[in-house]
Simulated assay, not measured.
Amino acid sequence: MRKVSFTEFGGPDVLRLVDAEEPHAGPGRIRVAVRAAGVNPVDWRIREGQFRTIRPIELPAGVGQDASGVVDEVGEGVEGVEVGDRVFGEGTSTYAEFAVLSAWARMPEGLTFEEAAGYPSVMETALRVIREVGVRSGQTLLVSGASGGVGSAVLQIARDRGITVIGTAGAANQDYLRSLGALATTYGEGWAERVRRLGRVDAALDLAGSGVLRELVELTGDPHRVVSIADPAPAEFGVRFSGTAGSMPEALAETTGLLARGRLRIPVEKSYPLAEAAAAHIDSQAGHTRGRRVLIV
């Protein structure tokens, strides 16, 4: 089979499309013929070696953790899924023609493989940070970097829970944020004052790592009401960094529920062939994403 791999840490140019042995589903796992794989910031952070001290990996290594596809192997002890089922979920080395998943759910009717591949990690992250920041119905949540995959998910989950959201993004994404129910404003000089004019902020999320933690603490009045998934030095401001994943099965269950009720949709901004994984990483690192980027297998 073909898969994307790298033999050394570095920039996008270290990624190679190689021939590799097919993985197989062990106990409690399933294997899918991958149709699409989600591109997440964690993928290129791992490729760069940012996590090698806290999460060592053996090289050469595959890339990717989100996928959608068709089940073609079911491991021992697995129930409720059969060969031929269309599923999406989380696994390892998903930038490949075949991948083993450790958590999955059946794809809802009407969802394409490309769309489905964009949901698992962003939904788990969005649900986790909303829980960790402690925001409740009737309160206002500020989301810095709101137009990407996680931001798109946060805005829609918050809307479903009765939470008001103020979102910051580039000028081109203001209408997009409003379409998801957010009060929108641009980042850049004077952004904090623009937020103040929109209303009181009870809690805040930093999804972009753009050096805004000081202002987020000032706007909320409490560093414990701010959570970051992107800033490398949140402790300097007393802010919590959220980096430990929660329950993917629970996140997938909530995802399918929101999709079924028509309360969630994360658009795919761009799709790439498997051979263009490096280009997908370059675009992901550049930011300014509206929704998700995926690889087509």
Results as ranks from 00 to 15, higher is better:
Lys3Gln: 15
Val4Ser: 05
Ser5Lys: 07
Ser5Phe: 10
Phe6Val: 05
Asp13Tyr: 01
Val14Trp: 01
Val14Leu: 03
His24Ala: 12
Ile30Pro: 02
Val32Asp: 03
Val42Arg: 07
Arg45Trp: 12
Arg45Phe: 09
Arg55Glu: 13
Pro56Cys: 07
Ile57Gln: 09
Leu59Val: 07
Ala61Gln: 10
Gly62Ala: 10
Gly62Leu: 11
Gly64Pro: 00
Gly64Asp: 05
Gly69Lys: 00
Gly69Met: 01
Glu76His: 11
Glu76Arg: 10
Gly77Phe: 04
Glu79Val: 15
Gly80Met: 04
Gly84Arg: 14
Val87Tyr: 01
Gly89Ser: 05
Gly91Asp: 08
Gly91Gln: 07
Thr92Cys: 09
Tyr95Thr: 04
Glu97Gly: 14
Ala105Trp: 00
Arg106Phe: 00
Arg106Gln: 07
Met107Val: 14
Pro108Met: 08
Leu111Phe: 08
Leu111Pro: 02
Glu115Pro: 01
Glu115His: 09
Ala117Met: 01
Pro120Val: 02
Ser121Trp: 03
Val122Lys: 08
Met123Tyr: 02
Leu127Thr: 12
Leu127Glu: 12
Ile130Glu: 13
Val133Pro: 00
Gly134Glu: 02
Val135His: 03
Arg136Lys: 14
Val143Glu: 05
Gly148Asp: 03
Val154Arg: 01
Ile157Pro: 02
Thr164Phe: 11
Thr168Glu: 10
Leu177Ala: 07
Ala182Ser: 14
Thr185His: 07
Tyr187Cys: 06
Tyr187Asn: 08
Arg196Phe: 00
Leu198Trp: 03
Gly199Ile: 04
Arg200Ala: 04
Ala203Thr: 03
Ala204Glu: 02
Gly209Ile: 09
Gly209Phe: 12
Gly211Ser: 14
Glu215Val: 03
Asp222Phe: 13
Val227His: 04
Ile229Leu: 15
Pro234Gln: 11
Ala235Tyr: 15
Phe237Tyr: 15
Val239Trp: 09
Ala245Lys: 12
Ala245Asp: 10
Ala245Trp: 04
Met248Gly: 01
Glu250Ser: 12
Ala251Ser: 15
Thr255Pro: 01
Gly257Met: 12
Leu258Gly: 03
Leu258Met: 12
Arg261Glu: 14
Pro267Ile: 06
Pro267Trp: 04
Glu276Phe: 08
Ala278Thr: 03
Val297Trp: 07
